Amino acid sequence: MSLQLGDTAPDFTQQSTEGEIHFHDWIGDSWAILFSHPADFTPVCSTELGQVAHLKPEWDKRNTKPIGLSVDGLSDHEKWDADIKDISGTNLNFPLLADADRKVSELYDLIHPNADATATVRSVFFIDPNKKIRASITYPPSAGRNFKEILRVLDSLQLTDKEKVTTPVDWTPGERVIIAPSVSNEDAEKLFPQGWEEKKSYLRLVALDKK
């Protein structure tokens, strides 16, 4: 059965480029981004891993730990790191799971036979500090991920956990958000004294930075 939003992220123990990972313990009180790769020494994956490494200040700002996975072994991962440095200008600064036995791939349903019978697809799982899966995105092996979008989704999840709002189409941090439909106008006046624009009774836009 595939994992669904709100499910507890399956726990596991697996080797990585940073030693043995006990997943739930490793997450601790942080958010986590678990993302899978079809194979080592492949072009799209190499560009992605370099980008994740470059984004370390952004992950840190969001109290988020990235962790990668492919079905190749640890020795291949370690050799691949040198290629990633040549391509992107930076070494890995996050763990890359060595899932040669496919233990984690099977837990997270990352092998899609209609796409590839042996390699994992490009899935991303957003996992909160309570170890719940809050969002997921799956790409085919041929399409590289947009990590700006992954950061945007993470920002939305973290914002809507703190405020009684949702985020509209194409939202980026700093733009207006939607007051949650479950919030009455009376309660909204207390939560958002700066006021809002009411497009419809169910669509009220508010700028949080003016609170």
Score class of each variant (00 low, 15 high):
L5M: 12
G6A: 02
T8W: 04
A9C: 01
A9S: 04
P10L: 03
D11H: 09
D11W: 05
D11V: 10
Q14D: 02
S16K: 03
T17L: 07
E18S: 15
E20N: 10
E20S: 13
E20H: 06
I21M: 02
I21Y: 00
H22D: 14
H24G: 08
D25F: 05
D25Q: 14
D25S: 13
W26G: 08
I27N: 05
I27K: 00
G28I: 05
D29N: 15
W31R: 01
A32G: 04
A32I: 06
A32F: 02
L34V: 10
L34K: 05
F35E: 09
F35M: 10
P38W: 00
P38N: 02
A39I: 07
F41T: 03
T42R: 01
P43W: 07
V44D: 01
C45T: 03
S46F: 01
S46C: 06
T47C: 07
E48R: 05
G50D: 11
Q51Y: 07
V52Q: 00
V52K: 00
A53S: 12
A53H: 02
H54M: 14
P57I: 12
W59N: 11
K61V: 05
K61S: 11
N63K: 13
N63P: 04
T64A: 14
K65R: 04
K65C: 02
L69N: 06
S70G: 09
G73W: 12
G73F: 11
S75I: 14
D76K: 15
D76C: 14
H77I: 07
E78C: 11
K79T: 15
A82L: 14
A82M: 09
D83I: 07
D83W: 04
D83N: 10
K85I: 07
K85D: 06
D86P: 07
I87Y: 14
I87K: 13
S88A: 15
S88P: 06
T90L: 12
T90G: 07
T90M: 12
L92G: 04
N93K: 09
F94Y: 13
P95Y: 08
P95M: 06
L97W: 01
A98D: 06
A100Q: 12
A100H: 12
D101M: 07
D101W: 06
R102C: 11
R102Q: 13
R102N: 13
K103P: 00
E106N: 14
D109N: 14
D109C: 10
L110G: 05
P113E: 01
N114W: 12
A115G: 07
A115H: 12
A115E: 15
D116N: 10
D116T: 04
